[in-house]
Amino acid sequence: MHIPDSFIPLDQAVVYWAITIPFIFMSMKWAKNELDEMKIPILAALAAGVFAIQAMNIPIGMGTSGHMVGATLVAIVFASPWAGVLVLTLVLLVQGFAFGDGGITTMGANILNMGVVSGFVGYYTYAALRKSVGTSIAAFGGAWLGLFISAIVCSVQMWLAGTFPLVPGLIAMGTYHLIIGFIGEGLITAVVITSIAKFRPDLLEDSFNAGSDRYNTEVHA
């Protein structure tokens, strides 16, 4: 879903940057409040894993492929969608500048779609479902919906840019990403989160995010 430079005119690309920069700023604020010696290795491991798995395109039929985005996974582990925004920002910076995967002018839109939209939708869907359906299914559902909604947002951007017609764009992007979201995002996120819940349950428990709880208490007090 990496939008190349040519797909969005410069004036619109600047607007997406302007929308996205406050989110990047907030994710840095999150990092400043939350990251410590204990959490940095976890963040680095997830960022490296997200970068590498994005190179692994999975065939989905119809002559099309897709890969995981990973914002929901990161957000679930850190119990915050800002963590997803942060990791996707770092990954998209490296992809854009070193590998030409996603444009530089369109990086704002790409961070918005893959970091902000997919991370926020994915994480809050997971949080809403977790108590009723359990961690694994909630992780699957959140990741799937997060990717699908970000693809819908992307097709609306493509329409505003004059690159895609609205309805055919929505149908094509929606269809492909329903499938990519099921396999590439939902299943992988569920498997990884289920493994973490088994081998490192402390990462998903409140103890790991005790710092954030304290922080919230202080803020609310």
Binding site: M1, A172, Y176, I180
Partner: peptide
């Protein structure tokens, strides 16, 4: 990895 175009390119 599949060499096929991704969702956005395919669309």
């Amino acid at each position: 990895a599949s060499p096929n175009p991704d969702g956005l390119e395919s669309a």
